[in-house]
Structures are given as C-alpha cells and as structure tokens.
C-alpha cells in the first residue's frame, strides 16, 4: 500500500462564533490521487481545505501529514508539503509582480538566487505564464491570476496541491483551459468545488460533504451519477450527464 500524504481522523471544527463547520470528517489521500470535494454552499468545503495546512487547527480529531500530526508546533514545517490555492487569486497574489509572487515561497525556503529563478521559471512554464512574469497582478485577467496563483504554490514543490473553487468566476474559456491543464497535471491534488463537471473531468475520486460530514466517498463517475444522493445534498447531476 502506498504511503498516505494526508489523513483526516475524526476532525471537528467550531468557529469562534459557535458555528460547527466540521462534525467528524475522516479520509485519507495517497500519492498520485486526484480527489474532488463537493458539497453545497456552507457544507464545510473551504473550512476543510483550510485544515490541510494548519490555517485552521481542529477543535478535536487530528490531521496527519505523512507521519506527523499537524499542530501549532509542527505546522510551520509541515505547511510546505501541502500547497493551497485559495478561492480568490487576489488574496494569493500579494506581491508587486508575478515574478516576485512566485519567488516568494522559494525565497522563504531559503533557496539561493539561481535556484529561485529556476523554480520560478519552471512553475510559470507549467501554467504557460512565463511571459507574464514582470506584470503586476492587478493587470492580469482573472484566468491569468488563477494560473499564476497555481504557479506560486507549485514553486514550493508541495506533495499535494489543494484548491478551493479554482474555477469560480472564470469565463468559460478560461475554465476550459484550467480544466485542460489540471487533467494533464499529474500531481496529487484535492479540489473543492461545486463545479461538478470540473470534478468529473479532473478527479477520479470524489468526497461528498454535507453539513460538516462525509456523506459519500468513492469513484467520481459513480458518485456523480447518483442523482438521488446528489439532490439530497443540494447538488445536481453534472451537465454532461444530464443527457440534454
């Protein structure tokens, strides 16, 4: 059995205002897997993603990265193994130019200049954005921002890439090219989205979340064609399966 990258064990989380966002979530992800997390608005997807690198720590239960539990003490070290791409690329791209932004992670890892340049070049090349490197983020289109946000995380060489609504607000063409990119992108990844077609296209495995709990966990093709289960969780069949 291949070693798991990340494991959630009975994770519960309550926000300071009392909202219980996660009520006992358990799953594990192994190397090379591509996992979709689907669920209605407010089902806990974003909260779950934020647990993956210690932005939030569970109220009870544990998150293990490799063999180590994620805690206040270990999170700085373990964080680099999980790259998170947040929903709004504007939050992700905080440096003045694309180059500076992608270089931010490698520089913090203490790499030397040649190494940093190498990493930046590689990461931007993967998302086909090399020619944007001198641009300031506020001059990019949303599609370009999303791509650069992915590059900025990939430059840190994470073991797994976690994305929160990567296609939200993208126009159809940008969304299409993002999907095409994610399909060719052989890397362990976890994608939270309610764009079920995207999940169906990109992820072979799918976890359905409802009201802070795992409702179903299995092959995407199987789960995402289960109309009853999906509709019970305020979701619907992916458009490509609706047979219109």
């Amino acid at each position: 059995m291949s070693h798991h990258i990340i494991e959630f064990r009975d994770v519960c989380f309550r926000y300071p205002d009392g909202t219980e966002a996660l009520k006992g979530i358990s799953f594990r992800i192994t190397h090379g897997e591509s996992v979709g997390v689907v669920g209605a608005n407010g089902s806990g997807k974003s909260t779950l993603i934020r647990h993956m690198n210690g932005c939030l720590l569970p109220t009870s239960g544990t998150v293990n990265i490799g063999d180590f539990p994620l805690t206040v003490k270990t999170r700085r070290e373990l964080r680099r193994k999980v790259g998170i791409v947040f929903q709004d690329p504007d939050d992700q791209l905080f440096m003045p130019t694309v180059f500076d932004d992608v270089a931010f992670g490698p520089l913090n890892l203490g790499m030397d200049e040649a190494c940093v340049r190498e990493k930046v070049r590689g990461a931007l090349d993967v998302v086909h954005c090399l020619d944007l490197q001198d641009k300031p983020p506020h001059r990019l289109s949303l599609g370009q921002k999303s791509a650069v946000a992915i590059a900025s995380v990939m430059a840190m060489d994470p073991d797994i890439l976690a994305m929160d609504e990567p296609a939200a607000n993208l126009d159809p063409r940008s969304r299409r090219s993002l999907i095409a990119f994610l399909k060719t992108f052989k890397h362990s990844k976890m994608i939270a989205s309610h764009d079920l077609d995207l999940i169906l296209d990109v992820c072979e495995r799918c976890i359905v979340i409802g009201d802070g709990r795992v409702v179903a966990d299995g092959p995407s093709a199987e789960l995402l064609s289960n109309r009853t289960m999906l509709e019970e969780n305020s979701l619907e069949l992916p458009l490509s399966l609706q047979g219109r």
């Binding site: 934020r50 690198n53 932005c55 964080r79 680099r80 999980v82 790259g83 998170i84 947040f86 939050d91 992700q92 905080f94 440096m95 270089a103 931010f104 992670g105 520089l107 913090n108 890892l109 900025s152 995380v153 840190m156």
Partner: peptide, 13 residues
C-alpha cells in the same frame, strides 16, 4: 493564510 502557506516569516523578500 496565503502568505503563511508559502512560508511567510514576517518579511517580504
């Protein structure tokens, strides 16, 4: 959070 995820330690290098 985005900064932390990329190793932020109080400086923008």
């Amino acid at each position: 959070h985005a900064m932390l995820s990329r190793g932020f330690q109080g400086d923008l290098p």
